[in-house]
């Protein structure tokens, strides 16, 4: 059985690349996947992980490279909620990945990942709204 020691980051936009740079700084074993080579310019010059250009919605791509079988943590940050939902279910139900983080623009997607203790949703809308409320409360004082 493959050793599960990799952190797989799907999507190398602002969020994905920042997470990749963070883990790279901590010396983790990272693979970042994006459909566009140009996205990897967001990575730091001393980024120590691997990059892979490919379509993450095509499971044969993830499987052929042996990425997902060796994943300890999968972080899904693409801008397509439906792709993110599918990848979450694949990582969870097919590969039993222990820690899955997924970003959703639509907070209602939480409906479809609830009840899975290993899956954590990240909702930029909710975070921004909470942030606004906190700032507003601060100003009211």
């Amino acid at each position: 059985m493959a050793i599960k020691n990799k952190i797989i980051i799907i999507g190398c936009g602002r969020l994905g690349s920042s997470i990749a740079n963070y883990f790279s700084g901590r010396g983790e074993n990272i693979v970042v996947i994006d459909s566009s080579e140009a996205s990897f310019t967001r990575l730091d010059n001393n980024f120590s992980g691997y990059t892979a250009v490919g379509d993450a919605s095509d499971l044969s791509f993830l499987e052929n490279q042996g990425y997902i079988e060796t994943a300890r943590k999968v972080i899904i940050t693409s801008g397509d909620d439906n792709l993110n939902l599918f990848l979450t279910h694949v990582a969870d139900k097919i590969y039993g990945v222990e820690e899955i983080y997924v970003r959703f623009d639509d907070p209602q997607k939480s409906l479809l990942i609830s009840g899975e203790p290993n899956v954590r949703g990240i909702y930029p809308f909710q975070l921004s709204f909470d942030n606004f409320l906190a700032l507003d409360e601060e100003d009211e004082k």
Binding site: S57, D81, N82, L83, L85, F86, L111, L112
Partner: peptide, 16 residues
């Protein structure tokens, strides 16, 4: 014609 859109729609329809 998007596989993942179809997947997300079907899963939502079934679960919720």
């Amino acid at each position: 014609n998007s596989d993942t859109d179809n997947y997300a729609s079907c899963i939502l329809a079934k679960r919720a």
